[in-house]
Amino acid sequence: MTDAIVAEGLVKRYGSVVALDGLDLTVPEGTITGLLGPNGAGKTTAVRVFTTLLEADEGSARVAGLDVRKQADELRTKIGLSGQYAAVDDNLTGFENLDMVGRLYHLGRARSRERARELLARFDLEDAADRPVKGYSGGMRRRLDLAGALVAKPTVLFLDEPTTGLDPRSRLGMWDVIEELVKGGTTLLLTTQYLEEADRLADQIAVIDHGRVIAEGTADQLKDQVGGERLELSVATSAELSTAAGTLAGLAVGQIDADDRQNHLTVPVTGGSSVLMEAIRRLDAESVKVLDIGLRRPTLDDVFLALTGHVADDSAQGEQK
């Protein structure tokens, strides 16, 4: 398998701000890679470099086998981009927008029109096709913008935060569309601030912070980096908390974390549900009243926290645009 995107040591500075600080990234052909990072991590800057909109100060990148700097013209025939802010023309209708993009990809008059109609149907925009985009909802705009990225059937597709600003229902719809789309074998680089989104869509995740990749792998691999399973339980009193901690010490494979304000216990374990059964048996024998107990795998939230020292969604809330 060859690589659709290879970036080596990309650096981009804006004055004293270092947007990309030696970014390395490899995206195998035909996969979905999620570029996950908080606000200001450098996601958009990276996408702009890959799509020839921006020249990096240092480093090199090849997309679809072409150098983003030296072979930019040829590369533009092979990529599709849906940027962070929908790049559609408000005064044109949905159809006119897509038709224009087709003409500028040099598909020719007949083919452009045909493709525009095809995509409008596929993205559920047929009814709005001949209305100016000015009157579209945020979700409709996003879908139209995504359709614009697909006009020339690109081999590598870039989606920069495709679901930011969408309501939960539209977000689910967008996920379905994206999953459908890559079944055809397109390589997709997707940026997101939502761990859940990366978890659901991406084959491979690159966590990016302060302009560099700080961790890479599948969602499961990343979770394993943070640690395995944990047993979590809540009890009613702090007396019971210490009893429980003592009782379960034999099952723990690491440090037990006891939170005596919440009366909550976190015990690292291995062995899956049999450990859970064993724990319940032992607690019962000691007559500890358990309010709630469960086995938990780390979420990407935990991964993020462990890697960056801050919670992704918290920093994302700060400047929601």
């Binding site: 799509t51 020839t52 909109l53 013209d73 040829e74 533009r76 025939t77 990529i79 599709g80 981009l81 940027g83 802010y85 929908a86 790049a87 559609v88 023309d89 993009v101 500028l104 990809y105 040099h106 614009g148």
Partner: peptide
């Protein structure tokens, strides 16, 4: 001030257009 220029620039169209 709009995103449309980014769309244009990602397309294989003439820079002068």
């Amino acid at each position: 001030t709009k995103g449309i220029i980014d769309r244009f620039r990602s397309l294989p169209m003439a820079r002068s257009a």
